[in-house]
Design a protein around this nucleic acid. Sequence first.
DNA 1: TGCGAACCGTACCGTACGGTACTGATCGGG
DNA 2: CCCGATCAGTACCGTACGGTACGGTTCGCA
Lengths: 213, 213
Amino acid sequence: MTAAIREANAGEGLTERQGAVLEQALRLLVDGGEKALTTAGIARAANCSKESLYKWFGDRDGLISAMIGFQASKVRTQDVAARALDAESLERHLIVFAKDLLEVLAGDVSLALNRLAIGQASRDGSKLGHMLQERGRRQIGRRAAALLEAGRKAGLLTFDDADEAYGALYGLVVSDWHLKMLLGEEAGEMKKSFSRKAEQAVSAFLALYGTKR
Amino acid sequence: MTAAIREANAGEGLTERQGAVLEQALRLLVDGGEKALTTAGIARAANCSKESLYKWFGDRDGLISAMIGFQASKVRTQDVAARALDAESLERHLIVFAKDLLEVLAGDVSLALNRLAIGQASRDGSKLGHMLQERGRRQIGRRAAALLEAGRKAGLLTFDDADEAYGALYGLVVSDWHLKMLLGEEAGEMKKSFSRKAEQAVSAFLALYGTKR
DNA sequence: TGCGAACCGTACCGTACGGTACTGATCGGG
DNA sequence: CCCGATCAGTACCGTACGGTACGGTTCGCA
């Protein structure tokens, strides 16, 4: 935990103290939503002064941006070694990917940050939205793209447009669950069905884009 | 327009004046996001007094709830006549449904209300979220369920769990476009590809659940 | 014509937030 | 031992919002 934070700080050019402050800010956001994310509240929760907040992050928007960057740099998606790929291991990797995707999207920090960015999308020219897409989504997208490409190179998958294939995989896996969770549907019950959901989605995806059946 | 609003008012128990006020409030929300949705702003835009707003809707939350109900009752999804369904007409109906779904989700009022409900999901116990799901989503879901059931009865589709099949259709059609739009991605470019996207999604869906191929 | 209800416009109040300024304490280096 | 920098804690300011109260106007109705 602390090691991951220290690495995140290094990547973002933050001191350990600043990282701890951002951690508290994320906790406030997760617990109470955007309304709870006040400068006074953050200062109180993190035992720092408001003046320091403004010195370190400029203003409230800068602090929110730093929170997104900080959280993104904590999540590292390891690329799967793409060698020795057969039909069974491809399916296994796809299922793992699908479960990871569902669990990332259902994470409370991810949900809180997405809610925050969506709530500000109409006023800030979607700056936070782009940042969230670039720092969060794009990472896991690359991992999937690499996996799909490896499957294609191994003759296990067939598709012309990789983006289209990824879109189908994403849709089959996520469907409308993400939106339901963003709207506040209790995630507790859902999480137990993630495994089954992931297997079904991958099975359907392979039926569409696999070469085997 | 006015006829639709009058009908909406009747369904919601609103006077024409109140409907006009809600219309202005929706316009404010679409143009400026939640920040622009102030009681003073609504009163100014609708040429009414704040006192009337509180008299009619109770408080700000009541007004927002009324906005959701008002908008939902304006959109009426006509059920497709399910007779004389062959493979080609089923596909045509599915494509129309897919395009309608994408266009509804991309509508600026829908996006604004979803952003508003998502932004409040953490503080109000997802009351608005449930309302949006019940009044908006559920309607179009029923239309799809009826279509799928008709296809199954006609021997053109095969599935055990209708919800699962609908989830797959929804995911294939929408993928991550809805989230991208909620995050502020410009919808102008996207809309032109809705037709192609709908056809591809339906084609994939039929490959999964159709009996023909 | 007179009356009362509804309502617009505005002024008003309490509160809460973003951001700034000040004070005092801690601490490392010369 | 002192100096400068950093920072916590707090007080403070301007603003904007939700909600309420009040004067003036319109309009239906008896």
